[in-house]
Amino acid sequence: MAEPYLRVEKLVKRFGPFTALGGVDLEVYPGEVHALLGDNGAGKSTLIKTLAGVHEPTEGQIYIEGKPVQFRSPRDASAAGIGTVYQDLALNQLMSVTRNFFMGRELKKSFGQLDLDKMNQIAHDEMLKIGIDFSDPTQAVGTMSGGQRQTLAIARAIHFGAKVLILDEPTSALGQKQQMGVLKTIKRVRKRGDIAIIFITHNEIHSRLVGDRFSFLALGKVIGAGTSDEISDKEMRRLMSGGAEMGDLEQELAAI
């Protein structure tokens, strides 16, 4: 097995007296989808915010390609190849696809003049690579569907050098058909082989469809991890419900 691109060791994050992450281990490999599952409040967002440089870890260490790293800001993390696509996607609805794609990192000719032809071309090509053929990149993002916006945000992260793509619940706010579109996009990115994907979800079906490796988080701890072969559907359901046996839950419910 190749070396993980990103490795996290005994990561602890405390907010004052509250321990949001209590010693998390995680490995993500290029060309793999690592599904991160867990109930609301389990600590998934806190974990990725620490990876993205938003929070500094209280204890523990992050390694990129085996080398220990410290992120002081989101800029540091993105320079190290960590591209985060947050739930709100950081897109501007009134602006065109191209202008959003290059927001803050515009291509310039002389006098700060935008190289719009080249920008349109790149935005179009990068989105085509992962699945949508957007014939008019001058169209406003507000006119795009939720799934297309996800694709735009993902294409943007990849174009600007993401080696680890972190997707925070990319399917949760979408309709059925668009959820499938996003899963397809994830598969296409995976197929490139050079990008590691962390896919956060609490939908076990979605994680099963695209995941190569799974980590289950509950109350700030990893309560189970393994590859898709190692984890059975039954085991998955048990871990998804925070480690409780389904039978126990049925009994509890029946007792009410």
Partner: peptide, 14 residues
């Protein structure tokens, strides 16, 4: 036509 213009729109939008 410029980067600054893109920033002006981006700042006001979101």
């Amino acid at each position: 036509r410029t980067q600054l213009g893109n920033w002006i729109y981006a700042t006001g939008d979101n």
